[in-house]
Nucleic acid binder design. Structure first.
Lengths: 155, 155
DNA sequence: GGAATTCCATTGAAATTGTCAATCATTTAT
DNA sequence: ATAAATGATTGACAATTTCAATGGAATTCC
């Protein structure tokens, strides 16, 4: 397991710089693990990471439109259509045409949706705490803060 | 003197337990951004993040089998077949049946493969430094160290 | 030694996901 | 008022993921 001791300047002839120093690779692998654990934990509730995310977004005060959901989740708007279709058909969310802009659908969780989100959050959290077991709470918060910078870059 | 993995950024106080506190979600979104940037940067060389990873793995001393590549990249073995097929058809890697286990293929980069990997590494690094340019080198190393714990959990 | 079992690579099919262009209804800009 | 832009939706298509099945090779177990 390599240590974070490498310099910033690239060294041309050094022994092959491993993938394990590559932030992109580490993100991909960590995400794959986390995603698998999350999906497994949410399956009991008939949810996946995606649908869970949408559901959670609709339980807040933000009242996001589908376009906003798509942007936030980095999905194509058409994918949000399917996700909301599914949640709506299960009575977990509703589409309300935004009075301020009647093109837009505001998606809002129903009571059942809120209840499910609340239960599912427990499962998700449990799964999430399995994965970074090796991290202290402090380290986990640091990680979250740093990831937040990557996930939501300014500008 | 604080350890490198101590808290650096305070968590924002939000009323609803937002998705932005969710490590899984942050990983997913950060990864999506990083992946998009990486793929875009590697496209010039006819590579994607996946094929680039395979290529890099085969330039080291590890001499990984396809099964090992699959495990490391968290891919299905059949996906590695396609990836290696592609790289091999372009003369970038070779399959050598492992003398110690003639079921296994050891994948090793050709000279052309090594040259391409070296050039592509430059592009990848450039792209990678674009994404987290809000982070100081110290923070980036902390992030890498923490991600490494998630990506390669003990046991 | 030989039979059963396990493992690696490969193929191919099915399901899921990602990407894109076109359309309708509405809103914004000229 | 007309034109341009935007949000949601649909449908088509590509790419990715997931699995089951196969053949050859190694391992295990009498």
């Amino acid at each position: 397991m390599p240590k974070p001791t490498d310099a910033v300047v690239p060294a041309p002839a050094s022994p092959a710089p491993a993938l394990t120093d590559d932030l992109s690779f580490l993100l991909a692998r960590a995400n794959a693990i986390s995603l698998a654990a999350g999906n497994a934990a949410l399956a009991v509730h008939g949810l996946k990471a995606r649908s869970y995310s949408v559901l959670v977004l609709t339980t807040g005060d933000a009242r996001p439109s589908q376009r906003e959901i798509a942007e936030f989740l980095r999905l194509d708007p058409s994918q949000v259509v399917s996700l909301v279709d599914d949640l709506q058909s299960r009575g977990l969310v509703e589409r309300r045409t935004d009075p301020a802009d009647r093109r837009a659908n505001v998606v809002v969780a129903t009571d059942a949706g809120r209840r499910l989100a609340s239960v599912a959050r427990g499962s998700a959290r449990a799964a999430e705490e399995q994965v970074p077991r090796q991290l202290t709470p402090d380290q986990r918060q640091t990680l979250a803060a740093l990831l937040r910078v990557l996930a939501f870059p300014e500008t």
